[in-house]
Design a protein around this nucleic acid. Structure first.
Lengths: 198, 198
DNA sequence: GGAATGACAGATATTGAAATCTGTCATCCG
DNA sequence: CGGATGACAGATTTCAATATCTGTCATTCC
């Protein structure tokens, strides 16, 4: 399928694996398929990834990192902490909603992968709450947020908005009232964060 | 198994069905099993429930209603609206956590059932957010909560606490920090609800 | 010598035939 | 006559044989 351009690298294997997962789905995507797509023997794939699980974990991490990187930009954007917080949460919701809506089959595939790789997801959540913490810290320093310890509050905000980013709610993301629900939750959280004097 | 005491009633069928589900699990619990447990032919069960799905839906509703009824008491309890709100959310979390922790297999069974009966779950959530709305209304009337329209805010509170009552998070309910997380989210929400003057 | 191969053993998935279940209904029983 | 029965057709599940896959490693190739 893909011509054997250049040497076999982890990067090329990951790309081929994504393609195989896209084509065959998570249940039928095999290491043999990946090797076939690359025009090599499956033994060669095992030189770069110790097990099939490790290969799938690497693919999962790549996929999650793409979201993290997109959101990282918002953390250091212009605007007040409240604006950035709202923008960040909206961007997270938007990213997830589009992933789920634009290609439901691929999203289902990655949902299977994330269920298999709880540790990778935990890391991803760690990264995201870290970003949130930096926004909330900025608000605390500016005095607009009355928050003594930003990290646990960031986690609370992340958890409280789970309905708008956790894949287990993906089926609700096309409901008509979902945007109003999102706004209602975010408004409530921002009010809870905000310093009374502000 | 159960002797044919009295006449065959929907109630007795539901009890037998719960027992069969408890024993065999959701995948292997059949209408024939239920009939056998009652000492009747499976045709008789179909006199009371049109389909197997209808029977399972009825069982699901009973199970969900038990939780609703337990929480209903808290709505009209003594105490300030904030106290009642906190107590209600804590009781919901506690009820779910115990259901999941005390008998994980039975909880898994009912998780399958609720996944099958999205409509029954929607009704249940409607009932629960209704209870929440009444607590928040009381707070709005008392002036402790600054909430123009309690119903959507009640839904926001319910959704924001999903991590502490939605079965899809059941695996996290035994984590060590979970109580602190619960408190952090509830504190944030209560602050968001509270009137600044209060 | 370092990377790639493919044969291999054990684990996992697929398949199709047989068994069981769901839902109906003509019949039976009190 | 109203409720219970059990035989039945079609749908679903189970089970065991068969095929495929995973992961290893001695061998090959550049």
């Amino acid at each position: 399928m893909t011509p054997p351009t250049g040497t076999l690298t982890a990067e090329r294997i990951l790309e081929a694996t994504e393609e195989v997962l896209r084509r065959h789905g998570p249940a039928k995507a095999t290491v043999v398929d990946v090797a076939r797509a690359l025009g090599v023997s499956h033994g060669s794939v095992y030189r770069h990834f110790r097990t099939k699980a490790a290969l799938r974990e690497a693919v999962t991490k790549r996929w999650l990192d793409r979201t993290s990187q997109r959101l990282a930009g918002i953390v250091s954007m212009a605007g007040s902490p409240e604006e950035r917080l709202r923008a960040w949460l909206a961007a997270l919701f938007d990213a997830k909603r589009h992933k789920a809506g634009d290609d439901p089959e691929l999203f289902a595939t990655y949902t299977v992968l994330t269920d298999e790789n709880v540790a990778a997801v935990a890391e991803h959540i760690e990264e995201l709450t870290g970003q949130l913490t930096r926004i909330i810290e900025a608000g605390a320093e500016a005095g607009t947020f009355a928050v003594p310890d930003p990290a646990p509050v960031a986690r609370a905000v992340f958890q409280a908005t789970g309905r708008f980013h956790d894949p287990c709610y993906a089926r609700d993301w096309t409901s008509p009232g979902i945007d109003e629900e999102f706004t209602a939750v975010v408004d409530l959280l921002v009010r809870g964060l905000s310093s009374p004097s502000q």
